[in-house]
């Protein structure tokens, strides 16, 4: 982990190395997405448009899978929106960290996804006056955006995935990577409860609710803890 005594140069290269490796891991899924998209009735430009304009992997897979399973346009759109809802919480959380306005705000919003948010929050917010958090967010967002789109294109035109992401263990790698990024954010009773409670709620609801809702429902845990925590402080 980055200590406060580390120089900006070493902090910066550490962040950029992580950002690149996250981009590479996610890109293998981008190839799968491209291949899936162009084999389920979407043209190459349409598949690419999803990676360029929607740019939030879970929503993209949800939209394409809904179409593949014979769902209507409206259910496909709704599925993508549902999976994209957690990004609203991310951008709300990142806004005081990023401190951007105008065109940069529009761009930052577009780059707000699981990976960029987790990387941005994994850094100490006070480190280098917030520059470490900001660099982590932007570099991860851009790294994933570029590599995800290149990968989508490769998958869409070759119509086959380069290797099976699961055979390479990438599904586990992405889960572990995100966990490593959440880890430094868990410091103290409240964040620990938010972490464990959120995970348990999502797992309990997984067998009974459609994909996407269980993760979203974990927000309730954060709200309840935030609520009871503030009451304790008020007393």
């Amino acid at each position: 982990m980055t200590s406060t005594t580390a120089s900006w140069e070493s902090t910066r290269s550490d962040i950029l190395r992580k950002a690149l490796s996250i981009g590479v891991a996610v890109a293998i899924y981008g190839v799968s997405f491209g291949a899936l998209g162009s084999t389920t009735g979407l043209s190459v430009p349409q598949t690419q448009a999803l990676s360029l304009l929607m740019f939030t992997g879970a929503s993209q897979f949800a939209l394409v899978s809904t179409i593949a399973s014979g769902g209507t346009a409206l259910t496909a759109i709704a599925a993508s929106w549902l999976l994209g809802t957690r990004n609203a919480a991310y951008s709300l959380r990142m806004s005081p960290v990023l401190k951007v306005t105008g065109a940069r705000k529009l761009l930052a919003s577009h780059l707000t996804i699981d990976e960029s948010t987790a990387m941005g929050l994994a850094q100490d917010e006070k480190l280098f006056e917030g520059n470490a958090s900001r660099l982590a967010f932007w570099s991860t967002g851009l790294s994933v955006f570029v590599l995800w789109n290149v990968a989508t294109f490769i998958g869409a035109i070759t119509v086959k995935a380069i290797g099976d992401p699961k055979a390479l263990g990438l599904d586990a790698a992405i889960a572990a990577g995100l966990f490593a990024l959440v880890w430094p954010q868990i410091k103290g009773r409240h964040t620990l409860t938010a972490a464990i409670g959120g995970a348990l709620i999502a797992l309990l609801l997984t067998p009974v609710l459609p994909a996407g809702i269980p993760v979203l429902a974990s927000a309730v845990v954060a709200i309840v803890i935030g609520w009871s925590w503030s009451k304790q402080v008020d007393v």
Binding site: Y90, D114, Q185, I186, A194, T206
Partner: peptide
């Protein structure tokens, strides 16, 4: 502020749990 600070922790941990077990 407290809720917003806790939201990504719950959401990302939920995501990790789902990516691991679902």
């Amino acid at each position: 502020k407290r809720i917003v600070m806790l939201l990504p922790v719950s959401l990302l941990c939920a995501l990790v749990a789902v990516q691991t077990f679902a």
